[in-house]
Amino acid sequence: MGKTFNFYCDESTHIENDGHPYMILSYVSTPYHYLKSHNQRIREMKIRHHYIGEMKWSKLSKSQYPFYSDLIDYFFSSELQFRAIIIDKAQLNHTAHNQSHNDFYDKMYYQLLNKKIHPHYDYNIYLDIKDTHSYEKAKSLKSYLCRDYQSVRNLQIIRSYESELMQLTDVLMGALNYKIRGLNRVTAKNNIIAKIEKHTQHNLTRSTSRDEDKFNLFFIDLSHGF
Rank of each mutant, 00 (worst) to 15 (best):
G2Y: 13
T4P: 05
F5P: 00
Y8C: 02
D10R: 01
S12A: 14
T13F: 15
T13M: 13
G19H: 01
H20D: 13
M23D: 12
M23A: 15
Y27S: 00
V28E: 07
T30I: 11
P31K: 10
Y32G: 02
H33F: 15
N39S: 05
R48E: 10
H50S: 15
Y51R: 06
I52L: 11
K59Q: 13
Q64K: 15
Y65M: 09
P66A: 06
F67T: 07
D73W: 02
F75W: 06
F76I: 04
S77Q: 12
S78G: 07
S78V: 08
E79W: 03
Q81I: 04
F82K: 05
R83N: 11
I85Y: 05
I86E: 01
K89C: 06
Q91A: 12
L92V: 14
H97F: 10
H101V: 08
D103H: 13
K107T: 11
M108A: 02
M108D: 03
Y109A: 00
Y109H: 11
Y110W: 13
L113R: 08
K115A: 09
I117R: 09
I117G: 00
H118S: 11
Y121T: 07
Y121R: 14
Y123S: 06
I125T: 04
D128L: 03
D128G: 14
T132R: 14
H133R: 14
H133Q: 14
H133A: 10
H133P: 00
E136I: 11
E136W: 11
K137T: 07
K137H: 15
K139D: 15
K139S: 13
K139M: 07
S140H: 15
S140N: 14
S143D: 08
S143T: 13
C146V: 12
R147W: 05
D148C: 07
S151H: 06
R153D: 09
R153I: 00
N154D: 09
L155A: 11
L155I: 08
I157C: 10
R159P: 06
Y161F: 13
E162Y: 05
S163F: 03
S163A: 02
E164R: 03
L168R: 03
T169F: 02
V171T: 03
A175D: 07
A175H: 11
L176D: 00
L176T: 00
N177L: 10
N177D: 10
Y178M: 00
Y178W: 02
I180V: 09
R181P: 00
G182K: 04
L183G: 00
R185Q: 11
A188N: 05
K189T: 02
N191R: 13
I192M: 15
I192H: 11
I193L: 02
K195L: 12
E197I: 02
K198E: 13
K198G: 01
T200V: 05
Q201C: 09
H202D: 02
L204I: 10
T205L: 04
T205H: 08
S207V: 05
T208Q: 03
S209G: 02
R210T: 07
D211H: 10
D211R: 10
E212K: 09
F219R: 06
L222P: 10
S223N: 12
